[in-house]
Amino acid sequence: KTPVGFDVSVWEFFWPLTAGATLVVARPDGHRDPGYLAEVIRTERVTVAHFIPSMMQVFLLEPAARMCVSLRAVFASGEALSPELRDAFLRDLNV
């Protein structure tokens, strides 16, 4: 979901490929739409995702996020992740 011109995209693109995983690429600007992201995560059975905490907060407000039961690991970077947001994410999504 990270735009290709952003430095974080390097590890988001190549890490899954070097590990033998499948890379799921969101549509252009899809990273801004929590409903779309939840649908992609659910339908593609995404297991690992990366969020900046401010987007993680918005994603948690999306009712469809609770259906993202395939997630096994979620990384947060780029901003400080508060313990409250971490706990809410873990509780609400059972990651």
Rank of each mutant, 00 (worst) to 15 (best):
K1F: 06
T2S: 07
T2C: 12
T2K: 00
T2F: 05
P3Q: 15
P3Y: 15
P3G: 10
P3H: 07
P3N: 14
P3T: 13
G5L: 05
F6P: 08
F6Q: 09
D7F: 06
D7L: 03
D7A: 11
D7N: 12
S9F: 10
S9R: 00
E12A: 13
E12M: 13
W15A: 11
W15K: 08
W15S: 11
P16Y: 00
P16N: 13
P16L: 01
P16V: 03
L17M: 15
L17Q: 14
T18L: 14
T18S: 15
T18E: 11
A19R: 15
A19G: 05
L23P: 09
L23G: 10
L23V: 09
V24N: 06
V24C: 14
V25W: 07
V25H: 02
V25S: 12
A26Y: 10
A26I: 07
A26M: 12
R27D: 13
R27L: 08
P28N: 08
P28C: 08
P28K: 07
G30A: 05
H31T: 08
H31N: 11
D33C: 09
D33N: 13
D33F: 06
D33V: 10
P34Q: 05
P34N: 10
Y36Q: 08
L37M: 15
A38W: 05
E39A: 11
E39S: 07
R42G: 10
R42A: 15
R42D: 08
T43E: 15
E44W: 08
E44L: 08
R45I: 02
R45Y: 03
R45N: 07
T47K: 07
V48N: 07
V48T: 13
A49P: 00
H50A: 09
F51I: 05
F51Q: 00
P53I: 05
S54K: 12
S54H: 07
S54E: 05
M56S: 10
M56V: 02
Q57D: 15
V58E: 13
V58H: 13
F59G: 00
L60I: 01
L60G: 03
L60Q: 04
L60F: 06
L61V: 01
L61D: 14
L61S: 10
L61Y: 00
E62A: 10
E62L: 06
P63V: 06
A65G: 08
A65C: 11
A65P: 03
A65V: 09
R66L: 04
M67I: 10
C68G: 01
C68M: 04
V69F: 02
S70C: 02
S70P: 07
S70T: 04
L71D: 11
R72C: 04
R72G: 12
R72F: 07
A73K: 11
F75L: 06
F75D: 04
S77Q: 03
S77I: 04
S77M: 02
E79Q: 08
E79S: 01
E79G: 00
L81W: 02
S82T: 14
S82P: 01
S82W: 03
P83V: 12
E84Q: 15
E84S: 14
L85D: 01
R86P: 00
D87E: 13
D87K: 12
A88M: 03
F89H: 00
F89T: 00
F89D: 00
R91P: 01
R91Y: 02
D92W: 00
D92R: 06
D92V: 01
D92T: 02
N94F: 06
N94L: 06
V95Q: 05
